[in-house]
Write a protein that binds this DNA or RNA. Sequence first.
DNA 1: TTTTAATTAATAACGATTATGAATTAGGAG
DNA 2: CTCCTAATTCATAATCGTTATTAATTAAAA
Lengths: 141, 141
Amino acid sequence: MLTLKQIITMLHQKGHKVTPQRLAICEILFSYKSHPTADEIYKRVSQKFPTISLSTIYQTLNLLMKLGLIQELGFPNISSRYDANTSPHIHIICPKCGNTQDYEDKKFEELWSKFITKLNFKPIGQRLEIYKYCDKCSKIG
Amino acid sequence: MLTLKQIITMLHQKGHKVTPQRLAICEILFSYKSHPTADEIYKRVSQKFPTISLSTIYQTLNLLMKLGLIQELGFPNISSRYDANTSPHIHIICPKCGNTQDYEDKKFEELWSKFITKLNFKPIGQRLEIYKYCDKCSKIG
DNA sequence: TTTTAATTAATAACGATTATGAATTAGGAG
DNA sequence: CTCCTAATTCATAATCGTTATTAATTAAAA
Ligand SMILES: [Mn+2]
Ligand SMILES: [Mn+2]
Ligand SMILES: [Zn+2]
Ligand SMILES: [Zn+2]
């Protein structure tokens, strides 16, 4: 997980501008260890920048993905989640609301990493996911 | 992977009608070991049933999912794929076009299954995915 | 300070999927 | 077999997350 300073350097290096909007979005992604949706990021950044557009959120997210700084977790019907942790790890996901949590298991992560390196190609990403209704969605049914 | 007869029995058991449209859709899903999109199924079934609606395809897919007979593989921006093989296995997926292939590795599947059983809850599904641009999408860029 | 290409923000467009409702039909009762 | 009815189909509209478009703004280099 990168620091804000590292991200700024990265943006400059690759010829991208460092705007206050981008910094605010990165702050949310890289400070809190959560898996926010574009709209959740939008709502939070709006508190600091009341005129920011949801469009800017999406554009920034796509830029950060292209730079390999974050990964998208997309699902059918519900909003994608964005994760600043791009190293292989397991997610526990509610298929109804998309609520996403990390499931830490260093042993399994190592097994998976070994498995990946043994492939005869280099993947551009991977996902390890377990589905389970969250408490809220279980109650509703 | 179930046979058509088993599916018919299952539908009857659960009080669902066995219609020619449903049979045609199931035939495609359970005969070919592929990962078709709703539209691909629609185009194929249309050859036998020229008046079938894409809506019927989706309704049938949702029914089969509710019965646990198939699993949906959903991605951001591109159509979901449907898989008649619901047991844990690894997919190699092109993030651009969604082209999906099974990657068979019995050893790893076993490791994963063991890992799943050790959890203190019973997941309703899981996904093991590796992303890699397919030959077509690599060429285009 | 000036310049300019990159970025933002507002809005329109898109596309996959779901919702709606009238017409049809599978399957059970008689 | 015939009738009945709830389930299903089909056509179409609606939804909604995301992308495309474009005029106004701005970061950052000269
Ligand atoms: Mn994570
Ligand atoms: Mn498969
Ligand atoms: Zn939930
Ligand atoms: Zn591809």
